[in-house]
Design a protein around this nucleic acid. Structure first.
Lengths: 148, 148
DNA sequence: TGAAATCAGGACCCGATTGGTACGGATTGC
DNA sequence: GCAATCCGTACCAATCGGGTCCTGATTTCA
């Protein structure tokens, strides 16, 4: 279905909620779980991943919590997807993976997915998390390519 | 990983091989399996899906086989993906799925993925299967957005 | 100094989806 | 009528993702 993981969806939710914290303030994982309605362990997992990717900053201790490393407007969607779902690549036959495919000799599209990946990266790089949270500032084209 | 299924990859391989058939000629599923190096049942499955989607035409009987319904240049990648992976939608929270999400009331990005989906559809609709099979006629932009 | 609160990192299990296979039926040509 | 092929469906196994839990490190506060 060309889907991305639920964790990415949760990440956007959590990041959006984090932006509502006052300047310099931090929100705890349990607090974010309660605010978003998601499970507490799941929210903690998402925050750990985002922290590892440098998108949020965690502060340990009694008065610890998380805060955004950057404003959401400066956080492209590609970074969140890359942090959780890994590098954006549609198939396993990319990234110069030579020798991994048994049908390598006869595969006519070997390495040809690159333009597709680039097109997707290009399309996604222009969208920030702030664009998802606020009013739909994107969607300039009304015509939608019918995909079944 | 934002991946699409292997079946879609196989479909592109099979479609590319199908185009090499002479005008009006058909290729059988076993023949295509041998030519592509893929498993025969798997190729048959892919062909059945593509036939159902109207991308290839099957002809039954002793001298039967498959042939392309259209030239690959007139076959956008979106149709192949939609045929095999289903409609292009990144998350389950799209398509006006009201009432399916338990965190619906507190979810701040509900329905906000639409611009993302549209952007991807738009990016993919400009790529045909022929673009994947032939020389890289696409990739006009040298700058690549680094995605980790 | 000790206790409590919180993040950090990893291991683990269960369910769902996908990849791959198999079988019976329908259709066509010889 | 027989053989070859496509068609539709059902089925099984393996992989992957979602979700949970546990232990340790760090910070604050009494």
């Amino acid at each position: 279905m060309l889907r991305l993981s639920k964790l990415t969806d949760y990440a956007v939710v959590v990041l959006t909620r984090l932006e509502e914290a006052e300047e310099g303030g931090v929100l705890t994982a349990p607090g974010l779980a309660a605010a978003t309605g998601l499970g507490e362990p799941t929210v903690a997992k998402v925050l750990k991943i985002l922290s590892h990717a440098g998108l949020v900053e965690g502060r340990r201790g009694a008065a610890g919590g998380y805060r955004l490393a950057r404003p959401l407007a400066a956080m492209p969607l590609t970074e969140v997807i890359a942090a959780i779902d890994g590098p954006i690549a549609l198939t396993a036959c990319v990234d110069n993976s030579i020798g991994l495919c048994d049908a390598e000799a006869t595969c006519p599209v070997r390495g040809r997915w690159d333009p597709v990946n680039d097109a997707i990266r290009r399309a996604l790089s222009g969208i920030s998390i702030a664009d998802l949270a606020r009013v739909p500032a994107v969607v300039p084209h009304p015509e939608v390519v019918a995909a079944e």
